[in-house]
């Protein structure tokens, strides 16, 4: 009988914790584990290219369950392809809804052109009908409220949410919602209403202290916005029940102009929101995203940007501001596949125009169909195929990459088509650093839990 042989998975990555422990991660299973300095040499030996043969010791057996070691007859390429196919399940749907395409801000780096206002009543009706007609086959529905500035159309969000909640409750569908908002209209009263409408995750961008933020994220008439946004967030922190479940990702877009202000700003945020796990940071470099001022933007050199993201993130963690949960979910299997590349995801414009991508709204190849008032969708499947079938299957480098199951070569199909370059994620580029930060965040949370237990 042939001796059983185990090989290290090609989807492994490893890092080292601050206390010398080994951190191991697998992008196909999403498992992350740590090993003591005593276990480390045994583990590293088992993960050598030649693998291990025969019966596995108690130390090595868990490596199989987590996917770090795989039987030598397993086709990991087939695993990755199967994972890709699993995105074609028809019982999940993600809709990015633009209740308005207008915005009260005119941010310097914005790529949008704000061609129209509120969603037409017939499009609203079409959306309600579409979800009602799909309900029988759905198990999971997630809605991202987007725009424009979605809070300009707060009443429409309410009207649509009430209908969606009724439909999803009736059909026992797992429903979740999130919102990308500038935070200007996010008053306490409206925040409470949004929570009732199951909007639980909010991305709100603040680009530094008042003088920095107001110089780049200002009102259409030029007025400042910092004080209003911070005032709203302070009220939410002070007045919303401590046990209420939500996450606010404070996104900080940085470039050469505000680079030196990010840490002082994080200090300021930590004073206001530190040690409340619901307020989290999400740092990203400003890019040339297609706006009219692209040529004037003082964007960071990409090497600086890729380092600073994690430097700022860790700085926040040290001050009591957690890293956004987006980061950890981005390294899970399929976690970095863009919505534009997922078969059951659509962007719905205020006029019923259907898109795949939120960042190329004026490009013909992104106009993939139309939502009709009766709830049907008129879809150009050739255009959809362009977004959904690119990525790993046409890129040999992606096929050989440890991160393949997480992004499938499709983190940003738009970046690939515009630049001809591979759209690797910031997480993948600094995976050792990211794994260390996930370990560190875990340590901080455990210490907090211990403190809570001791107090009670």
């Amino acid at each position: 009988m042939k001796t059983k042989r185990w090989l290290p998975s090609r989807f492994n990555a490893m890092s080292q914790a601050d206390n010398g422990e080994l951190i191991l991660y697998n992008s196909y299973t999403g498992a992350i584990a740590t090993f003591t300095p005593e276990e480390k040499p045994i583990i590293l030996s088992a993960l050598k290219r030649e693998g291990v043969s025969g019966e596995l010791s108690d130390t090595l057996l868990p490596l199989v369950d987590s996917g770090f070691l795989v039987p030598d007859d397993v086709d990991e390429d087939a695993r990755a392809r199967f994972l890709h196919q699993s995105l074609h399940r028809t019982d999940t749907m993600h809709l990015i809804v633009m209740p308005t395409e207008a915005c009260n801000f005119r941010c310097t780096y914005c790529y949008q052109t704000f061609p129209r206002g509120n969603m037409n009543p017939e499009v609203q009706e079409g959306l309600k009908q579409f979800i009602a007609q799909k309900a029988n086959s759905l198990q999971h529905l997630s809605i991202s409220w987007f725009g424009g500035e979605p809070m300009l159309a707060f009443d429409i969000i309410g009207e649509l949410s009430e209908s969606i909640l009724e439909t999803t409750a009736k059909h026992n569908i797992n429903y979740s919602a999130e919102m990308t908002t500038n935070g200007y209209f996010l008053t306490l009263e409206k925040f409470r209403a949004l929570l009732n409408w199951h909007v639980r995750r909010f991305m709100i961008t603040i680009d530094g202290m008042k003088e920095f933020h107001d110089a780049r994220r200002f009102l259409t008439g030029g007025g400042g916005t910092f004080d209003t946004i911070i005032g709203n967030l302070k009220a939410i922190k002070a007045e919303i029940d401590k046990d209420e479940d939500f996450e606010i990702y404070i996104r900080i877009n940085f470039d050469e102009d505000n680079l030196d202000n990010v840490k002082p700003f994080i200090d300021y945020l930590a004073d206001l929101f530190g040690n409340d796990r619901r307020f989290q940071t999400f740092c990203r470099p400003v890019g040339r995203w297609g706006g009219e001022h692209d040529g004037d933007l003082p964007i960071c050199d990409h090497r600086v940007a890729e380092t600073k993201i994690w430097e700022f993130t860790e700085y926040g963690m040290d001050k009591g501001l957690p890293m956004s949960s987006i980061v950890e979910s981005a390294i899970m299997p399929t976690g970095s596949v863009c919505y534009a590349a997922k078969p059951h995801s659509f962007v719905i414009g205020a006029n019923g125009q259907l898109y795949k991508c939120t960042c190329s709204l004026n490009e013909d190849f992104n106009h993939v169909g139309r939502l009709l008032p009766d709830g049907s969708m008129d879809i150009d499947y050739d255009k959809v195929a362009f977004w959904v079938t690119g990525g790993e299957d046409k890129d040999a480098n992606c096929q050989a990459c440890f991160f393949r199951p997480a992004c499938q070569g499709n983190h940003c199909p738009l970046y690939r088509v515009r630049t001809g370059k591979r759209p690797c994620t910031f997480e993948k580029k600094k995976i050792k650093q990211v794994l260390r930060l996930i370990w560190k965040q875990n340590q901080i949370q455990e210490a907090e839990q211990l403190e809570t237990i001791e107090r009670s």
Binding site: G30, A31, T34, S66, R89, M332, T334
Partner: peptide, 15 residues
């Protein structure tokens, strides 16, 4: 070995 994140199946991942 301490597990920070458990392994999940392709079906769970695709939710």
């Amino acid at each position: 070995m301490k597990i920070l994140k458990p392994a999940i199946s392709p079906q769970q991942a695709a939710n």
